[in-house]
């Protein structure tokens, strides 16, 4: 590979690490705030550039395999953290986000086989990019929502007042749900063109539907004014369903005939 993944990943991790470290020091020395932000930002920028180069190298968007989607998460999740800090002045989220991004990159560094160039005919569709991109951003939002909810749960256990945190997790879940709905429908429209029917209860479809139902349930519980504190637990755990959908499905007994397993493709 012309663009070496390990170099890019290590550079990004180094930027995030030094950025986070400076960020922690910046609590006492405000002068360090800007360099900390720039360094953290640079980490994501490295990943964005890598994705761009890799895209042109492959002649197709690197969105096909789990390994490739992890590249996007690594680049985008920290950006959500920065956005939340900018919008709601919540500083801690970005550290979780950068940690998550490092986790994704480390998985890819340990499994280089995820990089493969060929794209099977069914995936060569104009629906490919919208379907995956919408899901990616949706998952990023819901990951951030889940992390926020978990943080809220800890604050509750230490009996701290935290109204702002609860509305952050709520709005991220709301936006994430909307994107999941679009992903689900785009997938259905694509499936009609490629596989003949819009819904076949393929295991991945079933799990995507389950994740969608989980957040549909959340939004109705919220609407019914169920205690927001309890719902933080719900939001923190909902992401587990998404995780199964995202990479657990391939290991389930039901996945033998899934159109979403590309390992033999």
């Amino acid at each position: 590979m012309i663009v070496d993944f390990n170099t890019a990943a290590i550079t990004a991790i180094a930027f995030w690490a030094t950025g986070s470290l400076l960020g922690l020091f910046a609590r006492r020395t405000p002068v360090l705030k800007l360099p900390a932000l720039i360094l953290s930002f640079a980490g994501s920028l490295v990943m964005v550039c890598f994705i761009g180069l890799y895209w042109s190298l492959l002649d197709r968007p690197p969105l096909r395999t789990l390994g490739e989607t992890r590249l996007w998460y690594a680049a985008l999740i920290p950006l959500v953290g920065f956005l939340v800090e900018y919008r709601w002045k919540i500083t801690w989220l970005k550290y979780y986000c950068m940690g998550l991004a490092v986790f994704f990159l480390v998985i890819n560094m340990n499994h280089p086989e995820v990089f493969d160039k060929t794209l099977m005919p069914a995936l060569q569709s104009p629906w490919f990019i919208p379907h995956v991109v919408v899901y990616l951003i949706g998952y990023v939002m819901l990951a951030a929502s889940s992390v926020t909810a978990l943080h809220n749960v800890f604050l509750q256990l230490r009996s701290k007042e935290n109204v702002a945190g609860e509305s952050v997790s709520h709005y991220l879940a709301l936006l994430g749900f909307v994107l999941l709905s679009f992903g689900l429908i785009f997938g259905a429209l694509w499936a009609k063109e490629a596989w003949g029917h819009y819904w076949t209860w393929d295991p991945k479809e079933t799990w995507a539907f389950l994740s969608w139902l989980a957040y549909l349930g959340y939004l109705h519980a919220y609407r019914y004014k169920i205690d927001q504190g309890k719902l933080q637990w719900y939001l923190a755990l909902s992401f587990l369903v998404l995780l199964v959908c995202w990479f657990g499905v391939n290991y389930l007994p039901s996945a033998q005939n899934s159109v979403h397993t590309y390992t033999n493709g």
Binding site: W201, P203, T206, W207, F209, L210, L213, A214, L216, G217, H220, V249, L252, P253, S254, Q256
Partner: peptide, 17 residues
């Protein structure tokens, strides 16, 4: 009912259909 549909779908998502 959403929970019930989820549980039934969960069965469908785990047991080979």
């Amino acid at each position: 009912l959403i929970v019930a549909i989820s549980v039934l779908s969960l069965i469908g998502g785990v047991v080979p259909q």
